[in-house]
Design a protein around this nucleic acid. Sequence first.
DNA 1: ACATATTTTTAGATTTGTCTAAATTTTATT
DNA 2: AATAAAATTTAGACAAATCTAAAAATATGT
Lengths: 223, 223
Amino acid sequence: MFKFLFMTHSEEDYIKAIYHLGVLNNSTVATNAIAEQMDTKPSSVTDMIRKLSEKGFVSYKKYQGVSLTDLGTQKALTIVRKHRLWEVFLVDKLDFSWDEVHEIAEQLEHIKSEKLTDSLDKHLGYPKFDPHGDPIPSKAGVFTNTTKKLLNEVAINNSGICVGVKDSSAPFLKFLDKHEIALGDYITVLDKEDFDGSLQIKINEKIILISHQIASNLYVKST
Amino acid sequence: MFKFLFMTHSEEDYIKAIYHLGVLNNSTVATNAIAEQMDTKPSSVTDMIRKLSEKGFVSYKKYQGVSLTDLGTQKALTIVRKHRLWEVFLVDKLDFSWDEVHEIAEQLEHIKSEKLTDSLDKHLGYPKFDPHGDPIPSKAGVFTNTTKKLLNEVAINNSGICVGVKDSSAPFLKFLDKHEIALGDYITVLDKEDFDGSLQIKINEKIILISHQIASNLYVKST
DNA sequence: ACATATTTTTAGATTTGTCTAAATTTTATT
DNA sequence: AATAAAATTTAGACAAATCTAAAAATATGT
Ligand SMILES: [Mn+2]
Ligand SMILES: [Mn+2]
Ligand SMILES: [Mn+2]
Ligand SMILES: [Mn+2]
C-alpha cells in the first residue's frame, strides 16, 4: 500500500508543473505545455507522465492530456507549500531580495521532512503569502482566499494595495525595486492612456507613468 | 577549465565519505572502507572513484586506494561546512534536538548557493561548532583548533568540560539526554573501576557511574 | 615461497531520466 | 471530407548510478 510514497526530485518538479498549468485553465494539461514549462522534450514528458500515472499521481489517457489525481494534488500542494515557506525564510530571515529566492527554493522544496516544514512554518510565524504575494497552502492544503485584481483592470480614480506580482521573474522584480514599487504600497489609478494602455498612478505620494505591461503584472486588492 | 564544477548529490556524498575516512588515518582510503561507510558495494565505489578521479577530485591508482586532491578536499570542506551549519540552524532556530538533525542535514548539505551558505552562517552568528561538538570549517576551510580528549583518558580527580561526542548516533545522543549529560557540562572523574573500565564521575552536582563505552565516546576539554 | 584468503576490479545487467528521429494520432484548413 | 499541420507517442540510444557474479591483484600465514 505504501510502496510508491517516495518521489524523486524530477517527479516532484513534474507534479508541480502540472499543478501550476492545471490551476490556470482548470482542464487537462497538454504534453507540450509541460515540456515548455520544464524545459524538456515532449517525449521525455510522455515517459514521465506514464510513470506518474502508474504511481497514481496523475490520470492520463493517451493523446488526451493529463490531470492530477487527489493524491497528486496533495503532493503538489506540499511542494508548493515548502517552496513558498523557504522563499519567506530567505527573505525574512536571511535578507535575500525577492528576485534571488526562487532558484534556491526550487532546490529546498525537495527536502524531505514533515517536521522540518512544520517547524519552519512556525519559525516564520505561519505566513500566509510568499515574498511575491502568492498564497502559501496550510498543512491541510488550504489557501487563504483573497480577491485581487490586476492593476490594469482598476477603474480610474480607484485605489488598491499592491498584494502580488503575476510575473515573478527576476528582471520584473528588479524593475519594481528600481522604481520603488513594493508589496503593501497604496496605489491610485489617476489616468489611462488609450494610445498605449499605459497608466498614470499615484504611489508613495509620487505620480508616475507605468506601461500596460507593468500594470498587467501587478495585483492589487481593493480597499 | 570550468567544465567539471558541477557535482551530483552522490558524488558529493562520496567525497565527504572519503574525507571523513581520510582524516582519521591520514593515508589512502580503501575501496571497501568507502563501500561500508556509504552502504554500497565495492564495485559501485570503484566506478565512482574512477569518475571522481577523471574530474580531478581524487587521486587514484588501481588497487592502491584513493585520496582527495586539493580540489577534492576543498569540495569536502564546503559540504561539511554546509552540513554542520544546517545542523546548528535546526537546533538553534527550529528547536530540533541533536539526535534528529543529521538525516535532514544530509539532504540540506547539497543545496547549491554560496550566498545561502554565507547568509546562513551570519544568521547563526558564525558558529564554530555543530550541535555534536564537531568543528565547522570557515568559508576559507579553516577549523578552530581545540585540544580535546576522550573522557576515559582523563586521570582520576581531573576535570573537564564536555565539548563533543565521538559517536553521534541517535541512540547514544538520546542516552545522554536521558541521563542529563550535555555539551558544556563540567565533569570530574572521581574513580575508575579496573574490573570493567567504568567511571564514577561528578556532573551537575550529581555523582553517577558510566560505562567505559560511554566514557570513550565523550570528548572533554581540560580546564 | 607458495597456497589461501581478502580486496579490488571488470563484465554485464538494471533503473532512471533524458534525448533524437520516426511513426501515429488529433486538430485545423481548405 | 480530404489534406496539411501540429501535437503526441514510440523506438532506440545514452549517461548516471547502482547491482551480481566472475576475474584479477594484493595481502596473509605457515
Ligand atoms: Mn518561487
Ligand atoms: Mn524543484
Ligand atoms: Mn551530522
Ligand atoms: Mn548527503
